[in-house]
Computed example of a mutant assay.
Amino acid sequence: MADGNGDGESAHVGDREPTSPEVPSAASRAQSAALWGLVGGFAFLVVAQGYRLVEGSLPVGYGGLFALAGTIAVASGGITYATEHRLHAKRRT
């Protein structure tokens, strides 16, 4: 069965043309951003703990490390929330 464009290829009933990607909902983006924020904060704490094990000390105490980890978590979550929909629209996720 010809598909009507004259090139002689057959059309399949189950074939679909590529569609544009669905934009994730705000709740989905917020959840993803929160999880990436946690990953960023915990990754910082892991690196800081490894440095403490190898080198011995840091110029800040544990309270300062947790404050920095919280700042990094908020920043990475915010950056993720702001850019995820753009990457998804370009099909890079």
Rank of each mutant, 00 (worst) to 15 (best):
R29C: 00
A75L: 02
T19K: 10
G50Y: 03
G40M: 02
P59M: 15
A75Y: 12
T71H: 11
G41L: 04
V46I: 14
G61I: 12
A43Q: 04
D15C: 03
Q49W: 14
G14R: 09
V47P: 01
A73I: 05
A75R: 04
G4Y: 02
A82P: 01
W36N: 11
S76W: 10
S20Q: 04
D3G: 00
R29Q: 01
R92D: 08
K90D: 14
V47S: 07
G4E: 01
G77A: 00
A75W: 12
H85G: 05
L38S: 06
G78R: 02
V74R: 07
S76L: 00
G77I: 00
A34N: 12
T83H: 08
H88R: 11
A82C: 01
P59S: 15
F44S: 08
E22P: 04
S10V: 10
R16G: 03
P59W: 15
F66E: 10
S25L: 04
G64C: 10
S32V: 12
I79Y: 15
P24K: 06
Y51V: 12
A75V: 03
R52Y: 03
H12N: 01
A11W: 05
A48T: 03
A43E: 01
G70F: 09
S20G: 01
T93R: 14
V39D: 07
R52K: 11
T93S: 14
I79L: 07
V54M: 11
E9I: 12
P21D: 03
V54I: 15
V60E: 12
S57N: 10
G61D: 15
V46N: 08
A30H: 08
R29F: 00
E84A: 06
V47N: 01
D15L: 08
T71A: 07
L87D: 14
P59L: 15
D15P: 02
E9D: 13
A26R: 15
S76P: 02
L87R: 13
P18I: 06
K90E: 14
R92Q: 09
R29T: 00
H12D: 08
A73Y: 05
F66Q: 13
S20H: 05
G50H: 02
G14K: 08
L58R: 09
A34I: 09
G6W: 03
A30V: 07
F44K: 07
A11D: 11
S32R: 15
V13H: 11
R86K: 05
G40E: 02
S32G: 13
R16V: 10
T83G: 04
A33P: 03
V47E: 04
A30Q: 09
G78M: 00
G78E: 02
L38N: 02
G64S: 12
A48S: 10
R86P: 03
F44M: 11
G56W: 02
R29N: 02
V46M: 12
A34R: 14
A89I: 02
S20E: 07
V54L: 15
G70M: 09
V74G: 07
V54E: 04
H88Y: 05
P21V: 04
S25G: 13
M1I: 06
G63C: 13
E9T: 12
I79S: 06
A67F: 15
